[in-house]
Nucleic acid binder design. Structure first.
Lengths: 110, 110
DNA sequence: GGAATGTATTCGCTATTTCGAATACTTGCA
DNA sequence: TGCAAGTATTCGAAATAGCGAATACATTCC
């Protein structure tokens, strides 16, 4: 197989994984699930979103194997299936923090 | 200030940062810049994209303070300004790897 | 100043993402 | 079986993202 094509394919998968995390509501959902498994209604309330929108976000996360789901009676419980992602998200937060600090320093120097 | 609003604002910035990384071409650009500063033309060739598209991607990365630029004669050199991001990207790769391995195992078990 | 080189921006287009509202599906219980 | 509760999906609309092609801008060299 052509190595260049393979490389692009991996980058594409890589990007899809990042895209799954590139939404404020989904970030909130992931951090909610870090605390423990929750069902859809709970998550919808926690992230202040409609039931259908929440369900769609969960579908996206599940398609990337970031969460897994299990039906329990009426409820469907979602579990964080890739806890490593939290590490990555925390690094993004750190980068964000660096940027904000730098800006704050610029303001102080003026 | 309302804490809930602030939280949402941070998640929004967080998501914007992730979104900047959620594109195959931009991922390639970031990994290229990890090797060292490069100018636009070099990057365009490296990621196999037109000059204008490359320039636009760089603008997005710059708007998120991920890269910085400096003009040197005709050329504009771009530098990776947030090397921590590489760590985050590598974690995403690791997650991807876990997933592929798991799938490979499933195939073997069949 | 004028031509050449490298980069940035604009324009028109297509594709994708996200949402609410409405609807369909699934399960448990009377 | 029929209803209620919880979840998933579909639909249409609005917003956003990405591209190539063309154009504008910046810099160097003659």
């Amino acid at each position: 197989m052509n190595e260049q094509i393979l490389k692009q394919e991996i980058n594409h998968m890589h990007a899809s994984l990042c895209a799954a995390v590139a939404d404020p509501h989904r970030i909130m959902i992931i951090y909610e699930l870090e605390k423990g498994p929750k069902y859809v209604g709970e998550l919808a309330k926690a992230v202040d979103l409609s039931q259908s929108a929440t369900s769609r976000h969960l579908k996206i996360l599940k398609s990337q194997d970031i969460v897994s789901s299990e039906r329990v009676g009426h409820y469907v419980t979602y579990t964080l299936h890739a806890p490593k992602l939290i590490q990555a998200l925390n690094i993004f937060r750190a980068v964000l923090n660096d940027q904000l600090e730098r800006r704050a320093n610029l303001i102080n120097l003026e």
